[in-house]
Amino acid sequence: MKNHIKELREGRNLTQEDLAKSLGTSRQTIISLEKGKYNPSIMLAYKLSKVFNKKIEEVFIFEEE
């Protein structure tokens, strides 16, 4: 699953650490999400969408395999 997390984060001038703290997760999780190496739980996806004031579909790009 691809996402727009890095673009959204940089658009708000947030560091990976800032975003991680606001979500209650680690910087390593943010790195993995941005690189597309980790698919978040539905709760984390929801929290990310709220941080960026976007719909989940605007943050994540679902690609059927």
Rank of each mutant, 00 (worst) to 15 (best):
L23W: 11
L14A: 08
I61Y: 10
H4E: 14
R12C: 03
N13R: 11
L8P: 05
K50A: 12
K54S: 03
I5K: 03
F62W: 08
I42E: 11
F52G: 02
S22E: 13
K47C: 11
R9T: 03
K47T: 10
N39L: 12
G36M: 01
K37R: 15
N53T: 08
I31M: 08
A20I: 13
I31P: 01
Q16N: 01
K21H: 12
K6A: 14
A45F: 05
Y46K: 14
L14H: 05
E65G: 08
L14C: 09
L33P: 00
K6C: 03
S32A: 15
I30C: 07
E17V: 15
A20P: 09
I56E: 10
E34A: 02
Y38C: 02
L14R: 04
L14T: 10
Y38L: 15
F62A: 04
K37N: 15
K47I: 11
I5L: 05
I56H: 01
S22M: 15
E64C: 06
I31R: 05
E65R: 15
I56C: 04
E57M: 10
P40W: 05
Q16G: 08
R27S: 04
E58I: 05
Q16H: 05
Y38R: 11
K2I: 10
S32E: 05
F62R: 02
I42M: 12
S26Y: 06
R9E: 04
T25P: 03
V59K: 01
K6P: 00
I42V: 15
T29N: 12
G24E: 09
L48W: 00
L33V: 08
L8I: 12
N3T: 10
E58W: 06
K21L: 15
